[in-house]
């Protein structure tokens, strides 16, 4: 029952995706090219954010804690 509902919902969502990106009117091989490109782009975005965001966050933290003065630094140092 629940599975069917989720399946319906997913197929509806896919249909909306087809309509909005216009892949509804593309031929199947074009559709697969489009989907592949889009998936690759999304995968790359996710991968690069996975790789780079933690580094940037750490750098930013260090930078701001540097600005905010020694007190914080000492607490952080104490904690670590």
């Amino acid at each position: 029952m629940d599975v069917k509902y989720i399946k319906d919902y997913l197929s509806w969502l896919y249909y909306q995706y087809l309509l909005i990106t216009c892949s509804y009117v593309l031929e199947p091989w074009e559709k697969s090219i489009f989907n592949t490109l889009l998936l690759t782009a999304i995968a790359m975005v996710i991968y690069s954010s996975y790789v780079f965001i933690p580094i940037h966050v750490r750098l930013a933290m260090e930078f701001f804690s540097g600005i905010c003065g020694g007190q914080h630094e000492s607490t952080i140092a104490l904690m670590s």
Partner: peptide, 16 residues
């Protein structure tokens, strides 16, 4: 915006 995007995608495939 989505409509223009759709036309953009179709145009790209058209060029292809």
């Amino acid at each position: 915006v989505l409509t223009y995007m759709g036309y953009g995608i179709l145009t790209l495939f058209g060029y292809m």
